[in-house]
């Protein structure tokens, strides 16, 4: 049994079906990537799984327990934690305070981090611990978002476009930090548009299109899948590519 099981998950906004019966199994010992064109339902999937938006149908199980629609803070306390596309932080507080708030909530978890400082060391922000979060450059703000999420002692971390807005070297450094998480017992499920990074980083890719899962498997296989190529390149370009 996978740690996170999603069964027939549906989400409708009025007449728009954002998720149309998604099934997923995600474990906590690997990096799983979720890809798909804009509007395919990736962020909505995270929102519904983590209780930010209520599900219209289907169910989410965490270690076998039904956590559908139980509320965002309760899900976070079960150590299923997500980040937003915008860095998750409080701009008016210091870097240390930001992480400390999350750490205070998460320290009843597995006690992985003895102090907030350890998390800052891990993500490379220790020298900036006294800086006001709102004054950080974008790359550091992204790291802070990750540090805050780690503070909650996640068992599975859902990262929504962690590399968005980063330059190549920042994105590579960020990916290196993410790659260190599964060996420490923190599973990662991430959304990103950088297919090279996703192919390198992920053990498994899941492809969504119009709220439906159209492919799943090792990155090499998934990216070679004709349905996935059609979604990304379009039917005409696919023909040209082949």
């Amino acid at each position: 049994m996978a740690a996170l099981e999603v069964r027939g998950l549906r989400k409708q906004f009025g007449g728009v079906v954002a998720l149309n019966g998604i099934d997923l199994d995600i474990d906590t010992d690997r990096v799983v990537g979720i890809v798909g064109p804009n509007g395919s339902g990736k962020t909505t999937l995270f929102n519904v799984v983590t209780g930010v938006h209520p599900a219209t149908g289907g169910a989410v199980f965490w270690h076998g327990q039904d956590i559908t629609n139980i509320g965002a803070h309760r899900i976070a306390r079960k150590r299923l934690v997500r980040t937003f596309q915008q860095a998750m932080s409080f701009p008016g507080l210091t870097v240390d305070e930001n992480v400390r708030i999350a750490w205070e909530q998460g320290r009843k978890g597995d006690g992985r981090w003895a102090s907030p400082g350890m998390i800052l060391e891990f993500v490379g922000l220790a020298p900036l611990s006294k800086a006001i979060a709102g004054s950080l450059p974008f790359g550091s703000l992204r790291r802070l978002g990750l540090a805050v999420a780690l503070g909650v002692s996640p068992e599975l971390l859902l990262l929504d476009e962690p590399g968005a807005g980063l330059n190549d070297s920042e994105a590579q450094a960020f990916a290196a930090v993410i790659a260190q998480l599964p060996p420490q017992g923190i599973g990662v499920c991430l959304i990103d548009h950088d297919m090279d990074m996703m192919a390198d980083l992920c053990d498994r890719l899941i492809v969504l299109d119009f709220g439906t899962k159209i492919a799943e498997g090792p990155p090499g296989e998934v990216l070679a899948d004709p349905k996935v190529r059609e979604v990304y390149l379009g039917p005409d370009k696919k023909a040209a590519a082949s």
Binding site: A72, H73, R77, F90, P91
Partner: peptide, 24 residues
């Protein structure tokens, strides 16, 4: 205090605070 910090976080951004496990 721990509760005060969580309160400040909730005032600053309710959604983010909830995702940190704070019972806003």
């Amino acid at each position: 205090s721990r509760y005060g910090m969580a309160l400040r976080a909730s005032v600053a951004d309710r959604d983010t605070a909830e995702l940190m496990g704070i019972p806003v």
